[in-house]
């Protein structure tokens, strides 16, 4: 009797995560699709519209989509190679004593609140860009990219290092015995063997970058223009939501949820693409 009841309780607890997911997706999609379904707004105008002026009933998020895309890609291009190389260094090359100090320190940094990366970005990176590139305002796409790239480093390093360390020793020995150089062994044998873990590291770092909000607000500048250069002030999707949610109501608020849907789809898509790349490379 008690056994049966407890089994049910456990099942219910497990189902709560399904219920939560359904609630979240349901609420965000319901709210976000309302303007297009019931109020006659065009979804295409929303996605490709250049102007976001809620007071004039204009809701176009194309510049934000572009900003989010550029910021994420830029951070990936900078952060992934540096992160992976650091992970390889720690797992394969670094003297044991050095790795023993650095690895836990990097792991620790993965847990530091992301806001602090934003604070650092605003205090150091933004003025640096402003002075050295002769900008009017240092808050820019480039600043966002730098902050996000730094922020994703600890995540990528930690996860990728674990994956590389998990590669069986015999792979290395086999390759070395065939006369390959240590460096050649690392890049030809060890890294490919750790591929799925490395992909996971990239996906996690990516998730952190694309979803980051508060740190980005501090360094993005938040202008509503279509970015044409790295030094333009930008407003990615996440910051749009956070900046306006406080006072938005009615259609304006629903449009913020619609922005959320786009962000959501963005993440699903990128994960999907990366998973595809990963599985293809694996074959």
């Amino acid at each position: 009797m008690l056994e049966k009841l407890s089994g049910r309780v456990f099942l219910f607890c497990a189902l709560l995560s399904v219920i939560s997911l359904l609630l979240i997706v349901g609420f965000v999609f319901y709210k976000g699709s309302h303007p297009f379904v019931a109020e006659g707004y065009s979804f295409l105008d929303f996605i490709f519209g250049m102007d976001w002026v809620p007071s004039e009933d204009k809701f176009g998020i194309f510049p934000m989509i572009v900003a989010s895309l550029f910021a994420t890609m830029g951070a990936l291009i900078l952060g992934v190679p540096v992160g992976l190389f650091t992970a390889i260094f720690l797992a394969e090359i670094a003297p044991k004593r050095v790795a023993k100090i650095i690895s836990p320190a990097v792991q620790l940094l993965a847990g530091i609140p992301s806001v602090l990366y934003g604070v650092f970005g605003l205090a150091i990176i933004v003025p640096f860009l402003q002075n050295n590139l002769g900008l009017v305002k240092g808050q820019s796409l480039l600043a966002v990219i730098l902050v996000l790239a730094i922020m994703m480093l600890p995540t990528i390093v930690t996860v990728a290092e674990t994956a590389i360390r998990a590669v069986p020793k015999m792979y290395r020995e086999g390759s070395l015995a065939l006369g390959a150089s240590p460096i050649g062994t690392i890049f030809k044998v060890v890294v490919p063997a750790a591929k799925s873990g490395i992909m996971a590291a990239i996906v996690l770092g990516l998730g952190r970058a694309i979803g980051e909000t508060m740190a980005v607000i501090l360094v993005a500048g938040n202008s509503l223009i279509l970015p044409t250069s790295l030094t333009d002030s930008v407003r990615p999707l996440t910051t749009n939501i956070a900046l306006e949610m406080g006072y938005a109501f009615g259609t304006h608020q629903e449009m913020l949820f619609a922005t959320g849907i786009v962000l959501f789809s963005f993440i699903l898509l990128l994960n999907f693409v990366l998973a595809k790349i990963g599985s293809k490379g694996g074959k």
Binding site: I24, F257, G260, F264, I267
Partner: peptide
Amino acid sequence: SLTGIPSIIYGLF
């Protein structure tokens, strides 16, 4: 999936 949702979406919800 819950792990992958960015916190701003949690905030919206």
